[in-house]
């Protein structure tokens, strides 16, 4: 055996994964080669050091709970859905052909019906009058009330929080409890710099009236009070309707918020309470000042 060949067997030899014939050949070579004896000793030292690296790490209760929740959701959705046979695979070819023909016939029939019936949906504005029919009364629809916009603006405050919240909500209930703070974080961070003397007075009174929420750090969903769960659920639904870019920004701010010292988090919460307490006129005024402050700053 040559040195190169011996070196290739050393890792397996140290791991005791070498067959008896090769082991004998290697031992025979080592007995005669000083360099390879040093090399196998070095291999042993390195592999022993690797084996001493800890194989386990503490798993937080948070991770366990988040995983188990994901599991429960998976189970309720039909845990082994990946193994289910899709319906189109289980259906026979003639049945599929028949179904396709039926769908086609239905589509053609509907189209015919659609063309023949003079319903208002078929008529362009004014076309009813041209055909001699009675034009439906024209209601002016406000331009901002398009269906997409209505859907985006809908305030999803209805519905009780579910017993099993979505994984995203379960893993970070505090994100959703603090969502309004995160949305207005920059404003709240510099609240003192932007505020007016009236606000300064309000802030002086604030510690007497404000009850900062969520100041207890991360808590699991089950540890929240029903009122807190409702708030987080409500905010979670709002969050789901935000554009993705805005969601990303909130997640970044959430991570940033986590790193702030407790006093700073408390200050932001107090600022938020003060901001929330403003009447609509004062809030508009504050927002205007905030914009000016921001443009001056840049």
């Amino acid at each position: 055996m040559r040195c190169g060949q011996a070196q290739r067997l050393m890792t397996s030899a140290v791991d005791d994964e070498l067959g008896p014939r090769r082991r004998r050949a290697l031992d025979h070579h080592l007995a005669a080669c000083d360099a390879c004896r040093r090399e196998i000793a070095a291999t042993g030292t390195v592999l022993d050091a690797v084996a001493r690296l800890p194989a386990e790490v503490l798993v937080s209760a948070r991770l366990e709970q988040a995983t188990l929740r994901r599991l429960r959701i998976t189970a309720s959705e039909g845990g082994s859905r990946h193994e289910r046979v899709p319906w189109w695979r289980s259906a026979s070819l003639p049945a599929l052909a028949l179904a396709a023909a039926a769908v086609l016939a239905l589509a053609v029939g509907l189209r015919q019906f659609d063309v023949m019936s003079p319903g208002p949906a078929n008529l362009a504005p004014g076309s009813a009058a041209k055909r001699g029919g009675q034009a439906p009364p024209q209601h002016r629809v406000p331009s901002e009330a398009t269906p997409a916009r209505v859907a985006r603006q809908a305030r999803p405050t209805v519905g009780e929080p579910p017993r099993e919240p979505p994984a995203e909500l379960a893993s970070a209930p505090d994100l959703f409890m603090d969502l309004p703070i995160l949305r207005h974080m920059e404003k709240l961070e510099h609240f003192d710099a932007i505020r007016t003397t009236t606000l300064a007075l309000l802030l002086l009174l604030l510690p007497l009236v404000a009850t900062p929420a969520g100041a207890q750090g991360w808590r699991a969903w089950d540890q929240l009070s029903p009122e807190e769960q409702r708030r987080a659920w409500d905010n979670y639904q709002r969050y789901q309707q935000l554009p993705q870019q805005r969601q990303r920004m909130i997640e970044r701010r959430y991570q940033q918020f986590q790193t702030l010292p407790p006093q700073e988090q408390q200050r932001l919460r107090q600022n938020y309470e003060a901001y929330r307490g403003l009447d609509p006129g004062a809030r508009r005024e504050f927002t205007e000042k905030y914009r000016r402050w921001k443009s001056d700053r840049h």
Binding site: A61, R62, L175, Y254
Partner: peptide
């Protein structure tokens, strides 16, 4: 890959996860 929520932030006061 985008991480939706950073679960690892030390919110439990665990400075040394490995001890």
């Amino acid at each position: 890959r985008h991480l939706r929520v950073d679960l690892w932030e030390r919110r439990d006061g665990e400075d040394h996860p490995e001890g």
